[in-house]
């Protein structure tokens, strides 16, 4: 198992978020809402199955989904935000998580 720190950051509002590893659901979060004073909605630690090649984030109620390929290297951190138009997900991997 590899521990992933997943930061759901900007643009979330009462969202239901599903995390999948290689198509299999490994976590779900409800009522995810960004607190703009720290630019963070939810910080989640997830154990990824060995050999995970794709991590997918879905917001089923908004019809949104996005994924990253791990290329054999599972990220330690993954930051996820909704774009300004609210219609796409943006990912940043392996950056320090720093909020204030």
């Amino acid at each position: 198992m590899t521990r992933l720190k997943l930061a759901l950051e900007e643009g979330f509002q009462d969202d239901y978020v599903v995390v999948l590893a290689d198509g299999r659901m490994i976590a779900e979060e409800t009522d995810v809402t960004t607190r703009y004073q720290i630019s963070l909605a939810r910080l989640v630690e997830i154990d990824l199955p060995p050999g995970t090649t794709e991590i997918e984030i879905r917001l089923p109620e908004k019809g949104l989904a996005g994924a990253i390929e791990t290329d054999g290297s599972v990220p330690g951190t993954l930051r996820v935000s909704l774009g300004r138009d609210g219609r796409e997900l943006a990912f940043v991997r392996d950056e320090p998580l720093r909020f204030a």
């Binding site: 720190k5 930061a7 607190r35 004073q37 720290i38 963070l40 910080l43 320090p96 998580l97 720093r98 909020f99 204030a100």
Partner: peptide
Amino acid sequence: VSGTSLGGIMFDD
């Protein structure tokens, strides 16, 4: 409780 990733917060919302 969030750990070292949170340097500060205006907690009163």
